[in-house]
Design a protein around this nucleic acid. Structure first.
Lengths: 169, 169
DNA sequence: ACAAGTTTTCAATAAAAAATGAAAGGAATA
DNA sequence: TATTCCTTTCATTTTTTATTGAAAACTTGT
């Protein structure tokens, strides 16, 4: 009798001030790594919630749509930031925040930064071979710059495992 | 006779393959730190250019508008990524890329990350005072989580100077 | 297998961000 | 100081990204 689909108007459930602070914090934090507001809202609320919340709980409290809730949870699950927990006697899934924040950084580095750097290094190699064909004077300048690029990419690659170690410890 | 304003159709100036590789690389790189395509294009072209380029050069080669060129250069100058150089006998300004890539990271950390972290820490303090007023059982859980947040923010703050040192060296 | 509850997907819509270009504001030259 | 050239600004348009919600696809209980 309280399914999501047939509920015409969603009932207003007030968020506490603490909830709001946490939510705003995570919205801002997630924005840095390019994630949409709704994802920050969901994680923020789950972070301060003292019990697992269902998708409908999230929709009610955050006043977001079914689709946004579903997709946000999917993304958060995929990066290990949210876990599904079994709620006895309840049919719907319930979700909790994984408090191990280092997981964000880890998956951000693994899924975003690392592949980008690898593609960039390939590009630099291609640039080197293109620069071979330039006339001597220009080639010198070109190589100088390409080398500098290469240097920075390698430096970035070296730095990532270190950051990971720092975060995981 | 070759002013920007009265040139109805902009003449096409071909980019070399090397130019294109560099531009694509920087577009991708800049996207990570949330900068628009046009900024990456401008920096990329200046990075491989063997001579200083004027704003009109950039508009022609990249096929971007006056406004995009002006604003992109303004931003890049503001983070120290592009310098204005004097071109003898030329009226218009000419621009070169500053190859010291660490400057990006430095200004990104200083202008984006640091202030965010500071605001977030303030929020965490506010969260702590709000949690004081919760009932004992919930308060315990709340403090546990807030402490964890605090721990990560402090860790982030400690990490930044280290990253900076690593980059500047 | 059926029915009711729940989640996912995705085409349509809304919101946010970036690009455009006309007009205003500055600088250099004459 | 007037004129011309160049740059900046900003209201408008375009493009990109996020959100919505109906319909499809699952799940669980009977």
């Amino acid at each position: 009798m309280s399914s999501i689909a047939d509920k015409a108007v969603r009932e207003e459930v007030r968020l506490s001030e603490l909830d709001i602070e946490a939510i705003e914090m995570f919205i801002n934090f997630f924005k840095v790594i390019g994630l949409p507001k709704s994802v920050g809202e969901i994680y923020g609320l789950l972070f301060v919630a003292t019990r697992p919340l269902s998708m409908e709980d999230l929709m009610e409290r955050l006043q977001i749509s079914l689709g946004a809730a579903s997709q946000g949870l999917k993304l958060l699950r995929s990066v290990g930031a949210v876990k599904v927990v079994y709620a006895p006697g309840e049919r719907r899934d319930h979700y909790v925040a994984d408090l191990e924040l280092s997981k964000f950084a880890t998956s951000f580095i693994r899924d975003e930064l690392k592949p980008r750097l690898e593609r960039a290094l390939q590009r630099v190699e291609r640039m080197e071979s293109l620069a071979e064909e330039m006339d001597p004077k220009e080639r010198k300048v070109a190589f100088q710059r390409i080398d500098r690029l290469k240097h920075w990419m390698e430096r970035g690659q070296k730095m990532m495992p270190w950051i990971l170690k720092f975060l995981v410890t």
